[in-house]
Structure formats: structure tokens, C-alpha cells
Design a protein around this nucleic acid. Structure first.
Length: 956
RNA sequence: GCCGGUGUGGCGGAAUUGGUAGACGCGCUGGAUUCAAAAUCCAGUUCUCGCAAGAGAGUGAGGGUUCGAUUCCCUCCGCCGGUACCA
């Protein structure tokens, strides 16, 4: 048998590719372009596990395929090296982030190289490299120096806005802003520099404001909304509280409408589009002002149901609403203060946990319903959120679940305003029904009433139609060391100025003590020499968050070594946008939203040629691992820990046990329902976890004590519990691709990962199945080699059958790569190999194109065989030649075997010439004995003949 | 709750526009080779009845459209992901 030795050939060809710069790509090509991008990794200390390369392999196959199809393919890679994970790792290991990042990148590079990916490494980017973050800072300055004009629907220079203010104030300005009040040119001119600066901050797309931020004490930083999950930090699971702080923000809300609208044209999955839509959270409604009794104050509310205004019986403000203190009457003060204190004491997590419980306090004040004039008591409650809408609502208990339970709890009136009797299945939430008890709206259907109510509100001048978004401006400040420094200087008055372009990059100072500080100050504040600039200027000490560098890196690859611009116009006009982007769903609303926002901003400035950065996007599924647990009894027995068989636990009550994850390497038959620890593996377990050296292991009828093992030669099996879950260090179930590659070779690893199933689907890793692919590769190799492993090929002409096998595979693989169905491509290779092996085909006319066909999947074996055919004499790599094209003429059959059905059920088969007439086929089918049996005595009502497919006789 | 996805043998999965359900692989069973094992090769493997030929059932459940449904429509259930006092 020929021996396939992947270790040898893979090393050889990887060197060849590097030496010959096979994957180098230029920007001046006559070929059409194609840009295939992977989401670049965080170089964390853990390294890659078998789940990470799934997307890289898929995109690599596609990139190689496109390259062979005659495209100039940009397929780059880099590292998202700034940010919390890198810094956390540095703190844990005590190694400086610069050094830790360097080491981690080296390790990642080694692992990536091992997989045989076709990246052009000359274009590598690292977000922590000053030559890179110079441009991150530069783009931030552009964002800082622009505002969003709602008339032209794009970003405009802040200098233009200043000119307008000088001329006429803000009376005619229609901008994305938090500035509601109008001012004149004179008022503007009367402002101090600091006041002007603060006013402009209300308009800038990158601006500073005091806001309630997600403060994480343990991490010593502020987190963005999408870095907080269930009230705790996404990384580390530390508690997060709301805290007012001066922070940089990006006005992403200005782009909400475009971010939403442009989704339609993208080739992204429905679920991903839905996630972005939900995150943007557009809702149409009305803003209205309610006067407050005995004051000049007004309460601004937002509602999507202005039609139900006659049913409004009270108002609710968020406890943190600025009007609360002003409105609260003397006699209600104590209760309100108490309630606010209670709300404040509750963590985000507690608030979410008991959503059902209704709480609140009465302020003692009353507002007037602007339409009915009725008095409405003003309450405060935590179910109204300061962040959303206006932080205040008109409560309509008849048509809102929460208002209803609030009214019931505090005994407030409920007026029915919508008659839903015509819609028995409708819930309170559905906008259907007929208006009642609602004055001029009576008798209208809800959608009509909404329009009428909106019109009335506008006519009366008490409010306006408004579109509200759930999307918040993005917090862009971190009080951390390992990030891009801000290119911002504050003058003596505290006015923010952009650092002049020729002074970029603002380099991150080298600090020995880079740990976060307890008082919330950035560690950079400690670098006094760095902070204090000439002429009394002081540097901003916050750094940018992790997503800053990743919001534009795909542009840098187009022209990665440009020192004059972030990328040249020519480069961007050539590469345009990313044609295929592959990565995980975890970036659905973070990275993908911010990148789209930055890109749209750059588009507004004419700096990029397209409105969207990523045309087609594929989310690879997560590869899961098997988690093996053993059950530890919570109560010790005679001071000893006891582990029990998983099958004994049910009877004894699972609540009495803690599940302890075991290293999967110790477990026998791991992943199966029978998985267990034998005596030997129990010994390994206690050697690994010495704290359990004294424990007893109770397996069925025997008790095993590893510290005092009986010498009876028997064994006992402690049954473990297998679950499918995350592959992670903490479950001791990580499979390292390096180990798999060491054993099977990287071509095998690549093809096995693809063979597991559809790329977008999550699936558990099972190393056992890899033998099938390994076997296939050996068989494939043996097509080209004789029993002594000598490359042996015949130059004889191929037969029709052989050509059919080849071209069937070519067609299948071409079609399936185009639809990203890589698992079925691997199956097609197996089919072709099995068939060729059976007929002992070793003809060049078949095997040479077959080697080309497999090249995107198994690049090393393909290159090796390609070289053996003598093709390297011309210096041409298999990865640079044209991909085989299917010749349909070989696929045509002379005769086709048709299934013949009676009433849709297959009863016989019969072969007909491929050009046989329908009449002949019908007659032939009817004449068959097996068919006769089934139609005997019945009337034939219809015969359906579908050419190339089947024949169906309808009888009855 | 809402939004999106998904459900096929013992397992991973295939069936691209409605046309032979279960490709390919794992696992399992039997056989060949071997002193033995590994490796390799051959045969079988959806379920039920049957020695077999064959018959019946079958793609989460129920219903519908159709000559014909894993595929389209309706109702329901399970699982995965997202999201939530969103006014």
C-alpha cells in the first residue's frame, strides 16, 4: 500500500509557498477583484482551539477557489490586539501587554500557518501598532470634527456649523443633536470659549458628555451596552453599576435610519439582519407635552399609541428623571426619596430578576391630559427607564400590560378605550380594535385613530410625530491602559482640541504600572510627562475601546503599508468593499454595527467608495465540545468527599450533588452515554486534583478509595455525565488544532472540519470521525502511487466512464463551493475516489484535473501531486492555475433509469433511452409486469412523465 | 413574551426549482488477510413482518394543497440563538 505522509509534504509545500510568495496579491491587476475577509482574532493567551479555524478554513477554500477562477483575491489576516482581553491576560501573567501581545501573536501565527491558510502576510495589521493606530486616531479626529446634518443626510464639518452659529445661531440648524433649545448669533457670540465648546459637543459626532455609564468596579472601567450581559460584564462576569462620568461618545444614533434601511441590500442571514434591526429598535409614535399643575414645567412623553390618550389616567416618570425632585410635594418627599434610594440600591441584575413585581411612589403632583384636560397623578416607578424615549410615559392601563398591573396595585382608574370584541385572539399589545370612550376618535379602527390622534396633537401644537430608536450613542471611553490614546488636548479653559495631524500618532506611553486605578482615573494619568503638554495643554487620558481599531481594519488591508493615508484612493477604488466576510455571530451588534457606522461616515466624506463595508456575510457555527462531569455529594460523609456514579444520582436527588467537570482525557468512551472513569482514570483524576486525594468513589456496589487502593485486580466504573457545550479551558475539553494536525496532517484537519456539516451550523467536535477523512486521503493518494509508493501514472486516453466520474465531481464541487456547501464537496471527492479506485484508474487525463479540483480543500496534497506531474518545471503552483470546468457532454446519459410509480408509490424501475418519447416511456412502463399487478382492474386516470425524473401512473 | 433559525437512521449529515428519502462518513454486524494485532479489503446496516421474493410504515405532531410533499400552506410541540418592564 502506498503511504501518504502528510507531515513531510505539508512542511515542504508551506515553505515553497512562502519562498515563492504564491499568495502575494497586488493592487494593479487586470483581473477582476475579490475580497475575502475573516474576522481577525484577539490574540488571547489561550491560543486557538478547533472551533476557531472553521471559518478560516471555509474562507480560505473560497479564496483559493476564486483565485483559481481568475480573480485577483485579497485574503489578508491580522490581529485585534488592543482591548480588555489582552490587558486582562497581561495582568494575570504579570507580563507587560506589549510583550504579552507579541508572544500571543507569535503563537497565533504559528497555529494559523499550521493550517495552510493562503493569507498575504505582507498586508498584516495589528491594531496596537502605532503605524496602524495613527489612522484610528486620525479617523476619530474626523468624526470629532463633524456633525450630522439631517437636511443633507450626511456628516458635515463642524467648522461650517460654527460659521452658521456666527451668522444666525442655531435657529435653522437641522442636526442630530441633544440640543433642543434655540439660540441666536448674538447669544452664540456672547458665550465663553468653554461654553462654545460645550455647545459644540452637543453636535459633534464624537463628543464628550456626562452620562450614566456602565461602571465595572472589578475591571476598573466603563463598558459599552453590548459588553454588559444580564447586568454583569461580558468578560469575567463582574457586577456593573450605573455611574455618572464624563465620557467620550460616538453619535451612532445619527445614522440609525441609514443603518436600518441599508440592511435590506446586504447578503446577510435573516437572523443577523433581525438582530441589527432589533438593536436599532425603530418605533414610530408621537412625542407630546403634558402641562403640570401649578408650575411652568412640562412633561415630555413618547408613545406609540397616541390613539389611547383618552385612556391615560396617570403618568409615570423614571425615578432618575430630572423633574422628579422639582415636582414632588412636601408631604410625599419622604416616600419618593425612600423609593429612589430603594431603586438605586438594586443592582441591574435584581431589577431584571423580578420584573413581575410592581413598585412605585406618588409624587403628589398632577399633570393635565392635553386633550381631555383631566388631572393625572404623577408617579415614579422603575419600570419606566430614563434611557428609553423621554424617560416619562402617559399610562394607559386599559391597553398596556405594565400600566395595568401598576394601576391595579395602586388602585388607579382604568378606562377602556379600545373595543377588541371583533378580534377575539388579539392581545393587549396588538394594534387592533375600535375606539370607544375617546371623543373624536370614537368608532375609528386603531390604525386610523393613530393617524387622527397624531394629526390632532400636531394641530394643537402639543407635540409631534416622532421616530424613536432603542439604539444609544456608543460609549467610546475606557479608563484602561491597553488601547488607543485619544488624539485630544485640553487647553487651560478645558476646551478640547484635536492633536495636529503631523503630530500623529499619539503614542501610548510605556508604563510599568498599567493596572486600572480604584478611583476610575485612567492609568495614563500617571504618566505626568506625557499628560502635560506645552503651553498648559493637557492630554486626554482615557483610551479608546476595543472596537475602535476593528471598525475600519478591513480598509487598511487594501493598502496596509501606506504612511500617508489610511489607504489610498486608488486602492480603495479597486478593492471597493469586502465581497465575503466570515466570522462569528458574537459580533452581530457590536463590531458589525460600529464598522457600518464608521464606513458610512467615511462614505459621507468621500473617503470610501461604497455605502456598506461587507456585501456578503457568513456566520460560521460554533464547534462545541463534550463536557464530562462527575457528581460530588455536597455533604461530606465522615469528613470525606464522595463521588457517585451518574446513574445513582437520579435516585438520590440531583440537588444533593455538585457537578465537577473532569478533564476529558481521563474519561473512558468520552462523549458516549456509557462514559466512565475506571480505577486508572480515577488515579489520574486525583493526581490532577490532589484536593480530592482522600475522596471516595462510589460506583454501583463498590467503593473505591484512591489513597488506599485495594489490590484485588478488579475494576470499577464511575459513570460520568456527558453534555455538549462550549469548548473552553474551564471545562477541560479544549481540542488543540496543533495536536490534530500533528497526527493527521492539516489537509485532513481542514477537510474534516468542512465535512462535519454545513458551515453556518453549530456542531459538536468528535475526533473519532476524522478517521474517515484520513482514510479517504490515503485512498486518494494511492490513486497516484503504486504499492511501493512510487508515483505511477498512465498517459492512456480516458474512457467515457472515467470522464463521467471526473466531470460529475467537477460540476458538483463547482456548484457546491458557490453555495458554500463545503461538506458535500468533501463527500463528492470521496465518491469520485471510491469509483476511480474501483476501476483502478491511474490516468493522467483524470487524476491531474482531480488534483486541481481538490487544491482549495487540501492545498498541500494537491501541490505535491501537481509537482509530481512535472508542472513545477514551469514554475506554476497548482493554486495559480485555472480551476477545472465541467464539460456537460460527459454528464449526459445514454439511458436513464426511471422510477415507475403507481399513485405516487415506487413499484418498479425501467431504463429508457435519454431521448425516448413520453409515449414510448408510458407504454413501456404500463407493460411492466410489476406495474400490471398494481393497476390490474383499475382505471388509469392519468400518466405523468417527467423527463429525466420519474413516471407516475394514477389509477383508481 | 417578542424576533430569527431549526427538527431526517444508533451518530454527524445528504436530498440545490415539489419528482427514487437516508448520498458521504462514523459506529455497529459478518467475512477475507494475519500466529496475533494494527492496517487494508469485501458484504450488510431506517423500522416492522417475512427464509426469501415481497408487503407495510417512515423526515417533531396533527391537518391541508398536489398525480406526487423532508421541500409549499395552517395549527401545535421541542431545541438553538438574539432580545426585553422599549412606552
Amino acid at each position: 500500500m502506498a503511504t501518504y505522509n502528510p507531515r513531510e509534504i505539508e512542511k515542504k509545500w508551506r515553505k515553497y509557498w512562502v519562498d515563492n510568495k504564491v499568495y502575494k496579491v497586488t493592487n494593479d491587476s487586470d483581473q477582476p477583484k475579490f475580497y475575502v475577509l475573516d474576522m481577525f482574532p484577539y490574540p488571547s493567551g489561550a491560543g486557538l482551539h478547533v472551533g476557531h479555524p472553521l471559518g478560516y478554513i471555509a474562507s480560505d477554500i473560497f479564496a483559493r477557489y476564486k483565485r483559481m477562477k481568475g480573480f485577483n483575491v485579497l485574503h489578508p489576516m491580522g490581529y485585534d490586539a488592543f482591548g480588555l482581553p489582552s490587558e486582562q491576560y497581561a495582568i494575570q501573567t504579570g507580563i507587560h501587554p506589549t510583550e504579552a501581545t507579541r508572544q500571543n501573536i507569535a503563537r497565533y501565527r504559528q497555529q494559523l500557518d499550521n493550517i495552510g491558510l493562503s493569507f498575504d502576510w505582507d498586508r498584516e495589521v495589528q491594531t496596537c501598532d502605532p503605524n496602524y493606530y495613527k489612522w484610528t486616531q486620525w479617523i476619530f479626529i474626523q468624526i470629532f470634527q463633524h456633525y450630522y446634518c439631517k437636511d443633507s443626510k450626511k456628516a458635515q464639518p463642524i467648522a461650517d456649523l460654527v460659521a452658521t452659529f456666527e451668522k444666525e445661531g442655531n435657529v435653522n440648524v437641522n442636526a442630530a443633536t441633544s440640543q433642543e433649545a434655540k439660540f441666536s448669533a448674538d447669544q452664540w457670540k456672547a458665550m465663553t470659549p468653554k461654553q462654545k465648546d460645550e455647545m459644540l459637543m452637543n453636535y459633534r459626532l464624537g463628543y464628550q458628555k456626562v452620562g450614566f455609564v456602565n461602571w465595572c468596579e472589578a475591571l476598573g472601567t466603563v463598558l459599552a451596552n453590548d459588553e454588559v450581559k444580564d447586568g454583569v460584564s461580558e468578560r469575567g462576569g463582574h457586577p456593573v453599576e450605573k455611574k455618572p462620568m464624563m465620557q467620550w461618545s460616538l453619535r451612532i444614533t445619527a445614522y440609525a435610519e441609514r443603518l436600518l434601511g441599508d440592511l435590506d441590500d446586504l447578503e446577510w442571514s435573516d437572523s443577523l439582519k433581525a438582530m441589527q434591526k432589533n438593536w436599532i429598535g425603530r418605533s414610530e409614535g408621537a412625542q407630546a407635552f403634558f402641562n403640570v399643575q401649578d408650575t411652568d414645567e412640562q412633561i415630555e412623553i413618547f408613545t406609540t399609541r397616541p390613539d389611547t390618550i383618552y385612556g391615560a389616567t396617570f403618568m409615570v416618570l423614571a425615578p432618575e428623571h430630572p423633574l422628579v425632585d422639582k415636582l414632588t410635594t412636601e408631604e410625599n418627599k419622604t416616600k419618593v426619596v425612600e423609593y429612589k434610594k430603594y431603586v438605586n440600591s438594586r443592582s441591574e441584575r435584581e431589577r431584571m430578576a423580578d420584573v413581575k413585581e410592581v413598585t412605585g411612589a406618588f409624587t403628589g403632583a398632577y399633570a393635565f391630559n392635553p386633550i381631555t384636560g383631566k388631572e393625572l397623578p404623577i408617579w415614579i416607578s422603575e419600570y419606566v427607564l430614563l434611557d428609553y424615549g423621554t424617560g416619562a410615559i402617559m399610562a394607559v392601563p386599559s391597553d398596556d400590560e405594565r400600566d395595568k398591573s401598576f394601576a391595579e396595585k395602586f388602585d388607579l382608574p382604568i378606562i377602556d378605550v379600545v373595543d377588541k370584541s371583533k378580534y377575539p385572539n388579539a392581545t393587549l399589545h396588538d394594534k387592533v380594535g375600535v375606539m370607544i370612550n375617546s371623543g373624536f376618535l370614537d368608532g375609528m379602527e386603531v390604525p386610523e385613530a393613530i393617524k387622527a390622534a397624531n394629526q390632532k396633537i400636531e394641530d394643537m401644537g402639543i407635540g409631534k410625530r416622532r421616530i424613536n430608536y432603542k439604539l444609544r450613542d456608543a460609549n467610546f471611553s475606557r479608563q484602561r491602559y491597553w488601547g488607543e490614546p485619544y488624539p485630544i488636548l485640553f487647553d487651560k479653559d478645558g476646551v478640547a482640541h484635536a492633536v495636529p495631524e503631523n503630530e500623529l500618532p499619539v503614542q501610548l506611553p510605556i508604563l510599568d504600572d498599567f493596572k486600572p486605578t480604584a478611583d476610575g482615573q485612567s492609568p495614563l494619568a500617571k504618566a505626568e510627562d506625557w499628560v502635560n503638554e506645552k503651553e498648559g495643554f493637557r492630554r486626554e487620558t482615557d483610551t479608546m475601546p476595543g472596537y475602535a481599531g476593528s471598525s475600519w481594519y478591513f480598509l487598511r488591508y487594501m493598502d496596509a503599508n501606506n504612511n500617508n493615508e489610511f489607504a489610498s484612493k486608488e486602492a480603495m477604488n479597486y478593492w471597493k468593499e469586502v465581497d465575503l466576510y466570515v466570522g462569528g455571530t458574537e459580533h452581530a451588534v457590536g463590531h458589525l454595527m460600529y464598522s457600518r457606522f464608521w464606513h458610512k461616515f467615511l462614505y459621507d466624506k468621500g473617503m470610501v467608495p461604497t455605502t456598506e463595508p461587507f456585501k456578503k456575510l457568513i456566520n460560521q457555527g460554533m464547534i462545541q465540545g463534550v463536557i464530562e462531569y462527575i457528581y460530588l455529594k455536597k455533604d461530606k460523609e465522615n469528613g470525606k468527599s464522595q463521588f457517585y456514579c451518574a446513574d445513582m444520582v437520579k435516585e438520590m436527588g440531583a440537588g444533593n450533588f455538585a457537578k465537577i467537570p473532569v478533564h476529558v482525557d481521563f474519561v473512558q468512551e468520552y462523549g458516549s452515554p456509557k462514559s466512565f472513569l475506571n480505577r486508572e482514570s480515577i488515579q489520574k483524576f486525583v493526581a490532577w486534583r490532589p484536593d480530592y486525594a482522600d475522596a471516595e468513589f462510589i460506583c454501583g456496589n463498590c467503593t473505591y478509595n484512591p489513597s488506599n487502593p485495594p489490590n484485588d485486580g478488579k475494576d470499577c466504573n464511575l459513570v460520568t455525565k456527558s453534555e455538549v457545550g462550549k469548548m473552553s479551558k474551564r471545562y477541560f475539553n479544549v481540542v488543540n488544532p496543533d495536536d490534530v494536525i500533528e497526527r493527521y496532517g492539516s489537509d485532513c484537519f481542514r477537510m474534516y472540519e468542512m465535512f462535519l456539516g454545513p458551515i453556518e451550523q453549530g456542531k459538536p467536535w468528535d475526533t473519532k470521525g476524522i478517521d474517515g477523512v484520513s482514510k479517504f486521503l490515503r485512498k486518494f493518494w494511492s490513486l497516484y502511487h503504486d504499492d511501493n509508493n512510487v508515483f505511477t501514472i498512465s498517459n492512456e486516453a480516458a474512457t467515457k466512464d472515467e470522464m463521467k466520474i471526473l466531470h460529475t465531481a467537477i460540476k458538483k464541487v463547482n456548484d457546491d463551493i458557490e453555495r458554500f456547501s463545503f461538506n458535500t464537496c468533501v463527500a463528492a471527492f470521496m465518491v469520485a475516489t471510491n469509483e476511480l479506485k474501483k476501476i483502478k484508474c491511474n490516468k493522467r487525463a483524470i487524476l491531474e484535473p482531480l488534483a486541481q479540483l481538490i487544491a482549495p480543500f487540501g492545498p498541500h496534497i494537491a501541490e505535491d501531486l501537481w509537482a509530481k506531474f512535472g508542472n513545477h518545471d514551469n514554475g506554476i503552483s497548482v493554486h495559480k492555475v485555472a480551476f477545472p470546468q465541467a464539460d456537460e457532454s460527459y454528464l449526459k446519459e445514454d439511458s436513464i433509469t426511471y422510477p415507475i410509480c403507481v399513485n405516487g408509490k415506487k413499484r418498479a424501475e425501467m431504463a429508457f433511452a435519454s431521448d425516448a418519447s413520453k409515449e414510448d416511456m408510458e407504454a413501456g412502463a404500463k407493460a411492466l409486469e410489476a406495474i400490471q399487478q398494481h393497476i390490474e382492474g383499475k382505471t388509469i386516470r392519468k400518466v405523468i412523465v417527467v423527463p429525466q425524473r420519474m413516471i407516475n401512473i394514477v389509477a383508481g
